[in-house]
Design a protein around this nucleic acid. Structure first.
Length: 596
DNA sequence: GTAGGGTTAG
């Protein structure tokens, strides 16, 4: 047993206590540690020690956490709080899984000192770790431990558990935890909402949000939705492109007085941008006071301008960023994307060369695309070869795409070989390669690609589109007849076909790679999901109303031509959000200037 | 042993 603290030791401890909040560098911490040790306070003042450990373990310095672990291991009888401090540090570290090892006692010295008891806090930190590693099974194990410990009535802990399940992709378990909680508060709701929104169930998130917003003021006050709720809902709207719900969420934010919150504003910018309303996004951005704007405000707005093809404005805003805000990798990705979509090759290269953060795969992807589109294929290839890390599948697909665009057989073959090496087996790769051969009339090679496709059991990435009519989402898959009104839709498409043929439309069948005749290829094209969605929009909305469509893949060349012609023939503005950007069709023109 | 731990945007 440590000897009881003498009065001088007590005075020293009190002095250290007041010093604790002032520590900043690792060297401070080491000196503090030495004094704790020298004065014997390390053992007589466990609470001071634990708080010291806690701060040390979270210090952003590579040697801080190892030092904290060393200290923990040196304790003859660590307390729960000492363990918790280390768990917390490990969970937030680059190797969160190590906190699970510690929890299992595997990081403590072998002739085991008495193992500290676990408490709710230990599990809370461990659950943070399993969430960060997306380890659903470990989350389940912690769930079992937490029940055995008898802390399953702790609302905050159960919220962490719910959040962890959701972040591991196990939405069913997250939902179950939520349903079985007898007491919830707003954070519990928010965790579920955010989990659904960012997982595979943004639609369900919206259903829940509508209910929550509708029963507002009937709930116990601790469950009242707050600005976090709004942010989660807006994130679901953004993903879905659900403008109606987004507007409703904005209105709700006003009623609870959350529109002054920067995070809410940032989410609004993103939501409006992804729902096709650039003007509303910009309006929100300008409504934020200059000094309140954060990096995310700029990133979201630059991204909005880029997605809508306003590369020049994106560059301008980038240049206007106040000095207090350092651009990060997201900023650069957004600006580069803007240059790419607007064909600003030199600007893009200039920004890329001036980057103040290390470019990642996506930055290289954008610049390769930019150079490749501009026909500077050798430079694009060179860029890939001189990257500090090996190119991934997406990057080679990018190169293949631009090689096809410029009919460069050598580079297309090279990219296709790399793709095969990397195990990519999607139809798009084959279609592009085959098209390069076809453009040179190398039919033998076209046939070879087709044979490989057949023998390789090629995966087809299913394309779908949807459009919102009166607040209801209508989803279409290529050639499907699932919709209640499919007969009308197909009839409308036939009518559209003859109307646009008068404007000189010829089907662009080169993107169809099936062993079928020309007529069937045309058929395969005419019922692309985006065409079904546009046709449905046309027959379900009054003349003159804007038609908004969202598609999960890039829009195909033929659909792009058709959308332009429909906009002219029917006097409609059509806005299509594809995987990468927006296309706004009006009077026969597209905002992308056919460069995408 | 007083608290500490939960949810949010690009």
């Amino acid at each position: 047993m440590p000897s009881p603290p003498t009065s001088t030791a007590a005075a020293a401890a009190q002095q250290l206590e007041s010093l604790l909040p002032l520590l900043s560098t690792l060297s401070h911490y080491k000196q503090f540690h030495a004094r704790l040790h020298a004065l014997g306070t390390l053992h007589s003042y466990p609470s001071l020690r634990a708080r010291f450990l806690d701060r040390l373990a979270l210090l952003p310095h590579a040697d801080a956490l190892p030092h904290a672990l060393l200290l923990l291991r040196s304790l003859p009888s660590p307390a729960t709080n000492d363990l918790n401090a280390a768990l917390r540090g490990l969970a937030a570290s680059p190797h969160p899984a190590r906190s699970l090892l510690l929890l299992a006692g595997r990081l403590l010295p072998a002739p085991a000192p008495p193992r500290p008891r676990l408490d709710a806090l230990s599990l809370s930190f461990a659950l943070k770790a399993t969430a960060r590693c997306s380890d659903a099974f470990a989350t389940l194990q912690l769930h079992a431990i937490l029940v055995r410990l008898g802390v399953a009535a702790d609302v905050r802990l159960m919220t962490t558990l719910l959040d962890s399940y959701a972040k591991c992709g196990d939405l069913a378990s997250a939902r179950k935890v939520f349903d079985e909680m007898s007491v919830r508060d707003v954070a519990t709701w928010n965790a579920l909402l955010a989990g659904l929104a960012q997982g595979t169930e943004p639609n369900l998130a919206l259903v829940l949000f509508r209910r929550l917003a509708g029963s507002f003021r009937e709930l116990p006050p601790r469950e009242d939705p707050n600005e976090v709720t709004v942010v989660a809902a807006l994130s679901a709207c953004a993903q879905l492109g659900a403008l109606k719900d987004g507007l409703a969420a904005h209105e709700f934010a006003r009623t609870i007085g959350a529109v002054g919150n920067v995070r809410v504003c940032n989410s609004l910018i993103d939501m409006y941008s992804k729902c096709g309303s650039l003007s509303r996004a910009l309006e929100v951005f300008h409504s934020i006071k200059l000094e309140d704007r954060t990096l995310v405000s700029y990133n979201a707005t630059i991204q909005a301008l880029s997605m809508h093809g306003h590369g020049e404005d994106a560059l301008k805003l980038f240049d206007e960023m106040p000095a207090r805000i350092e651009p990060d990798e997201v900023t650069y990705l957004a600006v580069l994307g803007g240059c790419n979509h607007a064909g600003l090759v030199d600007d893009g290269c200039r920004v890329f060369d001036s980057m103040r953060v290390a470019p990642n795969m996506k930055h290289y992807g954008t610049i390769v695309d930019l150079l490749g589109r501009a026909g500077r294929l050798a430079e694009a290839h060179d860029m890939i070869m001189h990257m500090p890390f090996p190119a991934d599948i997406v990057l080679w697909q990018t190169l293949l795409g631009t090689a096809k665009m410029h009919g460069n057989v050598d580079l297309a073959e090279l990219a296709a070989t790399k793709l095969a090496d990397l195990g990519s087996n999607v139809d798009g790769d084959y279609v592009l390669l085959s098209n390069v051969y076809a453009s040179k009339s190398w039919w033998v090679d076209v046939g070879r690609v087709r044979d490989t496709m057949r023998s390789n059991d090629v995966k087809k990435v299913p394309g779908f589109s949807y459009t919102e009519i009166d607040g209801v989402m209508h989803k279409f898959i290529n050639g499907d007849k699932e919709h209640m009104r499919w007969r009308e839709i197909y009839r409308a498409l036939d009518e559209i076909g003859s109307r646009i043929c008068e404007l000189g439309y010829e089907p662009e069948t080169s993107n169809v790679l099936h062993d079928i005749g020309e007529e069937e290829k045309q058929y395969a094209l005419s019922y692309h999901s985006e065409k079904l969605a546009i046709a449905f929009g046309l027959i379900s909305t009054p003349p003159g109303e804007t038609i908004r469509v969202i598609k999960n893949l890039r829009i195909c060349g033929d659909c792009h031509v058709v959308a332009k012609l429909i906009s002219k023939a029917y006097g409609r503005v059509i806005i299509i959000r594809d995987r990468a950007r927006f296309h706004r069709f009006e009077d026969g023109q597209c905002s992308c200037r056919d460069y995408w």
